[in-house]
Simulated assay, not measured.
Amino acid sequence: MTTKSTSSIRSQWTGMVAVDDTALAVTDSGGPGIPVVYLNGQFATQGYWRRVIADLGTDWRHITYDERARGRKSGRSTDYSFEAAVRDVDAVLAARGVDRALVVGWSYGAVVAAHWAARNPDRTLGAVLVDGAFPYDWLDDAMEQRIRKLFRRMGWFTPLLRPTGLTPRMSADQQADSNIELGRLSRERELAAVLDNLTVPTRYVIASGTSFGSRGDEQERIRAGLDGVFERNPNIRLGAKVASNHGAILRKDFPAIAEAVRDVAADSRTNSHD
């Protein structure tokens, strides 16, 4: 099995990748290592991965990008759907000449990674899902209203932070719609079917405690939805459960994420020789 891009000798590159009606800000470390593409949280940026990337070092080819209307440079779009997010993975990899990659996703990005890996088993070396992609029916009418109210409340100050790249250039309704769509995609019958179809080495790194907007033990109940997944699919395992919460996991527990990437890559090599 070849684990390198056909263009793996490329040097470091930063620029814009055109896709649909917009363009995405992309960074590619280049080099001959295994390509790893990092998929961000719903409204996060590629900078969140810097500690994981530093821990892994220069033996890997790191590809990061900001999703539509996120960060400082990625353009606005008329389509912020989940399917657009999955298509953007293809667009970025194609633009950088990468045929096969290991996908690492956090939160919303974990769901994108799971879907992309399930749809592209021959192009996926493995997946690391960081505190996301939990099959659980957490969205109901009351939660939908709670989400819309939360984003409208934040609407007065988020535009002030947009020049820094810390908040997306999306309206409160667009952000709420994206979050609600995620809830529908995360329903047990929907997401469990995707995870059950994963045929590549996959590791979860799970946080503890709460996430933004959650209450009480909601997040821990959602994480428990993985129990059945681990039982049904031997390709999917728990890499680690760490002490930090959802929002701090990339900052405080990056060594566990980097170790899961190494573990998946080693597993992928072993399977290729079976």
Rank of each mutant, 00 (worst) to 15 (best):
L198H: 05
L226C: 04
E231S: 15
D253S: 15
D217H: 06
E259K: 13
A256D: 14
G247A: 12
A248I: 02
D227H: 09
K241G: 10
S208Q: 07
I249A: 02
Q219I: 10
L198K: 06
E220P: 04
P255K: 12
H246V: 05
A258L: 06
P201D: 09
I222Y: 02
R223N: 10
D253R: 10
N235V: 08
I236H: 02
N245W: 03
D217W: 08
G213N: 13
R251H: 06
K241N: 13
G213M: 00
D253H: 10
Y204D: 03
A248S: 13
V229D: 01
Y204M: 05
A260R: 01
R232S: 11
V200L: 00
G225P: 01
G213E: 12
H246I: 06
Q219Y: 12
S208A: 14
A260C: 05
G213K: 09
R203S: 11
F254D: 05
A260Y: 00
Q219V: 09
F254K: 01
N235K: 07
A207N: 03
I222R: 07
L198R: 04
E220V: 09
R215P: 02
I257Q: 01
T202E: 04
R221D: 06
R203K: 14
S214K: 06
V205M: 06
T199P: 00
L238H: 04
A240I: 09
V200C: 15
L198D: 02
G228V: 10
G216Q: 03
A243M: 07
V242F: 03
N233K: 05
R251M: 14
E220K: 07
I236M: 04
G247Y: 01
D227F: 06
I222C: 05
G247E: 14
I236P: 09
S211M: 10
A243Y: 07
R215M: 11
S208V: 08
D253Q: 09
F230P: 13
E259H: 13
I236K: 06
V205C: 07
I257M: 09
S244D: 05
V229K: 05
G209L: 00
S214R: 08
